[in-house]
Design a protein around this nucleic acid. Structure first.
Lengths: 299, 299
DNA sequence: CCCAGTTCATACAAATCCGTATAGTTAAAG
DNA sequence: CTTTAACTATACGGATTTGTATGAACTGGG
């Protein structure tokens, strides 16, 4: 093997890759916990080392040249392999110290995580916890997190998932608001109800309508994907919200709506983790800990 | 994308990769034009960064741990991608300066290359030429060379090849030696001839026997893969050698054997180059130059 | 049209990394 | 058993790289 060909600074490729993906040197610097001048120099160095022009300096922005675009493909490959290396190394590490990144939704972050993390930190002081709060299905394969809490089973084959409970969803509102509502014997009678919804996409609406509801866009007066804002608006009497019972019940200002009708739906709670990390002592430790705690909560 | 996971020193992976492949830190240092202490520190750094033990320090040698072996796979992937990057970058480079590595056999290196390189350097002073002399089919895909001169068409699909001539092979010997040989009318009569051969494998023998010869191991008294040694031995009158006519004819001490029978065989001469490098200005420049020169020689 | 907010490039001090020299250890050969 | 050769780890001076601070240039909004 002729190693001369790979005997250039691999970190410069990383600099190029992150810069190209992030769009600017400054963003790349932030992503790599480095500084913009460093990235600037590294990209320049790569260009002179290989005698190619990767970026066109047009005004304040760097745009990839055709050459840069062609090479980016291989840089991405390297990045993917580096990620695999990192994942495998974390998995192989027999140290119980280090950081574990957990991806959760807003509500879990607010109602579940604080006590859970406190308890975990007490049990395993060597492990640092990083919480990524997002409602998006964050991509575990890209190492946005080590462990994720989801309400759906992941499709990717190389992820492992464990069901830790069922989230029971009710409609909640202020007692004052609820008194204004009619007494119903069927959900189809809720034609004039005001619900604070997630977004304008009608996926939830469709599901409920198929279950006998009769909802349209008119019922969703306020739209926001921020569930904590939904909660606050609901507390102000602006409408009803879909909320898990273990969280809604402890809100003093809220009460279940149409309780005699039973819960609206139940969502499974999945704990998801990358398969490569199954052998990591510390990730497994956190995974098992959360699984135990969640099962206690959702018992 | 979470870049934290790949935010370790990629050069340390390269250090690990080359060390694992080469076996020792010292060898890796030589391969990377670096020094042993540097590699030692880089491997150590990688181990502490990822909290894994890659090598077991047993005595004077480093042996891969199971963890190291598992991670080596991904390091190899990174190396392969780095190689692709390098190849593509060289291909994309529009600079006419740089180094071009040419792989040739001993005879071509001795008889053809000196004048050819001199002429090339005069025509393109910016290009540095590196010559790898080997009779093995050096692996262009591993970048052991940019351009190779071969007597067979490469099988790999992503290589491009151009036939630049035919090498006419005769048997040569000293006039004194040849006088002792019988006058023949058929090659099958050469039962007692002494030939200085390449190796004990009978591939050449088989080919010739199929063409009507009658050779056995007895005919190959001296065996060596070094063709220049074959030549010297032949000059000393130790036997006959297979030799290209354009090289053998200019050796004052040698003469064609059994010239009335015609040449023994003809071998094609191929110029081979990696497809990725076709767009490289300087590689293409050298490729075209050699093609032109070789065609003049073998006209 | 100007100004606030970004962006990338450059200068210099500080921190880091590398190479030389050296010591310590092991394996093989005489 | 001794010697030699080969390999890795450590110490220190020097070279390289990094980060902070700053400048210059461009974009977009008021």
């Amino acid at each position: 093997m002729n190693w001369d060909s790979v005997n250039f600074d691999w970190n410069h490729i990383r600099a190029f890759l992150v810069t190209a993906e992030e769009g600017t040197l400054s963003a790349a610097a932030k992503a790599l916990s480095s500084t913009q001048p460093t990235l600037s120099r590294q990209v320049h160095a790569l260009e002179t080392e290989l005698k190619v022009t990767l970026f066109e300096r047009v005004g304040q922005r760097l745009v990839l040249t055709d050459t840069g675009l062609a090479l980016l493909e291989y840089a991405r490959e390297m990045g993917a392999s580096a990620l695999k290396f990192s994942l495998a190394a974390t998995g192989k590490s027999q140290q119980i110290e280090g950081t574990v990144i957990i991806s959760v939704g807003e509500l879990t972050a607010t109602y579940i995580m604080p006590k859970l993390i406190a308890k975990l930190r007490q049990a395993e002081p060597g492990i640092n916890i990083e919480v990524v709060v997002t409602n998006e299905p964050s991509d575990l394969k890209r190492r946005e997190a080590d462990i994720a809490i989801r309400s759906f089973h992941p499709k990717q084959a190389d992820l492992i998932a464990k069901k830790v409970g069922d989230e029971v969803i009710w409609l909640y509102g202020t007692p004052e608001y609820l008194q204004q509502q009619p007494v119903i014997t069927d959900f189809s009678q809720l034609e004039n109800i005001q619900i604070i919804g997630f977004d304008r996409s009608s996926s939830v609406t469709d599901i409920l309508n198929r279950q006998g509801w009769n909802l349209s866009k008119q019922n969703f007066s306020i739209i926001t994907p921020f569930q904590l804002l939904q909660l606050e608006l609901c507390k102000e009497g602006q409408g009803l919200i879909f909320f898990p019972e273990n969280m809604g019940d402890i809100e003093p200002k809220l009460a279940r709506a149409f309780e005699h009708m039973g819960p609206i739906m139940t969502l499974p709670v999945w704990l998801v983790c990358h398969q490569e990390l199954r052998t990591s002592l510390r990730v497994r430790c956190v995974f098992d800990f959360i699984a135990q705690e969640m099962q206690d909560i959702y018992l």
